[in-house]
Amino acid sequence: MIIALAVILATLLYAVGGERGILTFLTLCWNIAVLSLSIIMISWGWEPITITFLSCLLICSATLFYQNGRNAKTFSAFWSVILILVILILPAYLLGLNSHIQGLNELMLREDEIMGLTPNININIVKIAVSMMITGLIGAATDTSMAISSAVYEVFRNNRQLSLGELFRSGVHIGRDVLGTTVNTLYFACIGESMMMFLLFKSYHYSFWRLINSKAFFQEFTDIMFSCLACILVIPLSAAVTSCILKRPEKFKRFLDEDELFLYLKDNGQPGQIPDRDK
């Protein structure tokens, strides 16, 4: 069944996306491989947050650079995502530590499949909870920052005279359009995932106050909240990073030499004509 669905997905990717579809599929496989590898490494007892951060770098660079090419857009999206990760790791860790987010929640403890598992893993499970939060937000953050950096790039391509502030403002403006739908995507995915949990809460007749203090709810809640916060905060960040890079391409020369807008940097020339898209 899983294999059948995977085959359908691959076929559809090719049918809808053509060559880009194959790229997407390969990136997907790579991301899943990196994710599994990082999980294996964490289970060996390696430092979970560091491993997660490194695997996020790998995943992010594959999604951006391999799938969408190396240019100013992907480069600035990449840096925005890294910045947002660095910003959010500490609050996530502090919150996880203080609110006892770690471990199995009270609903899981009643499940049969837990019975055979050993609780003696000798890994700090707060850190695992934090790496779970970080992994959850990376997809949303990449999506939003890519949308914004490519929009700012298009604006800049059509009007090279715009100042840093104007570019930033247009980035945030576009971000407002993206925000609502991304938050929606996260919310519905979360509802779909945790529907069983809510049904269980209902059948145990949990009151509202007992619900919001329960660990099971709190785990789901922080997961989606951090994803939402990441995709909100990445909007101004990504707008700022993109406009900075576009306005001062000399400083980021070595990353931009494959970008069509900044080809002139290669031989230290002057900014010339905008390459025509249709050609």
Binding site: T24, N31, I39, S43, L117, S131, D143, L186, A189
Partner: peptide, 30 residues
């Protein structure tokens, strides 16, 4: 469509899979 599909599928992947990371690690240690 091509521009959004890749990152959207990624959003789905990480939102769904991330929730089960702690349990997977527990099971691997068992």
């Amino acid at each position: 469509g091509h521009d959004i599909m890749g990152t959207m599928i990624n959003v789905m992947l990480f939102t769904y899979i991330s929730g089960s990371i702690p349990l997977i690690i527990l099971k691997m240690n068992s």
